[in-house]
């Protein structure tokens, strides 16, 4: 396993392992994420890529019996240090989930503002919401129905609403867990375009099991694979163009050429 020489890293893991009860799902991963770049985590189902992602904002630990060992460094500070508040961590590291999960009882506007931007006037809150919705390429579609239920939106619109909700908190890193898994090809294309444009402002780490998507949207790609004891391991990480053309590890080559997974 080789790490990319990236001095501009914002987020890094150090010997990170994640468990569900006794089962180790991710083992000893050390990886750096480049600032304002899109890093794609690829690998076959069950390789631990989603679990790894969920360790990066400490959402893994909300599941029963789930725990983490090792360190995750955000700008050099361990987010698992005892004096680190997970709420503050999640404020700085936002997340978009596999299935759109707008809050069903809140309006579109209140969904975007749900992160709780305190101390802002009504006017300023509207500005925050508009900026986030514009950044998520959703503003024009919802600007006339901000007070309505998000459940009337299409799946792709709901997912962009969730992206707007995440970036309204102005996080430094945006984690995306297969954000297009439940969307049709057109909605997928919109989200992919969005990921590229958001990378100018945010550091993005995205899980995908679609290799074409990784090739299209990411600057860096990390390949994960479960070993014979079902522990997810990081196999290789490199610039996307290199990883897909000249993989160093034969297992990476097997995967990207479609020999398994």
């Amino acid at each position: 396993m080789t790490a990319v020489a990236a001095p501009a890293e914002i987020l890094a893991t150090d010997d990170l392992s994640a468990y569900y009860g006794e089962h180790k799902a991710v083992g000893d991963v050390s990886i750096q994420f480049r600032r304002k770049a899109v890093t794609a985590l690829i690998g076959p189902s069950g390789c631990g890529k989603t679990t790894l992602l969920r360790c990066l904002n400490r959402i893994h630990e909300v599941l029963f019996d789930a725990r983490v060992t090792g360190r995750v460094l955000l700008d050099g500070h361990d987010i698992y240090a005892t004096d680190m508040d997970p709420m503050r961590v999640r404020r700085r590291i936002g997340m978009v989930f596999q299935r759109p999960n707008p809050f069903p009882t809140l309006s579109i506007l209140d969904n975007v503002l749900a992160c709780g931007r305190h101390g802002l006037t009504r006017e300023q809150k509207l500005q925050v919401a508009e900026r986030a919705l514009r950044a998520a390429a959703l503003w024009d579609e919802v600007k006339d129905k901000l007070k309505t239920s998000p459940l009337r939106l299409s799946g792709g619109q709901q997912q962009r609403l969730c992206i707007a909700r995440a970036i309204a908190a102005e996080p430094e890193v945006l984690l995306m867990d297969e954000p297009t898994a439940s969307l049709d090809p057109i909605a997928t294309a919109v989200i992919e375009e969005l990921m590229c444009s958001l990378a100018k402002e945010f550091t993005i780490v995205a899980v995908t099991h679609n290799m074409q998507q990784a090739a299209r949207v990411s600057d860096v790609t990390a390949f994960m694979l479960a070993d014979e004891t079902r522990i997810g391991r990081l196999i290789e990480v490199d610039d996307t163009s290199k990883l897909f053309t000249k993989p160093r590890d034969p297992r990476t080559e097997d995967y990207i050429t479609g020999r398994f997974g």
Partner: peptide, 14 residues
């Protein structure tokens, strides 16, 4: 759904 709860937690809510 757990996803709704996690969505709220992921925004930094207590």
């Amino acid at each position: 759904p757990q996803t709704v709860r996690e969505g709220a937690l992921a925004l930094g809510m207590s």
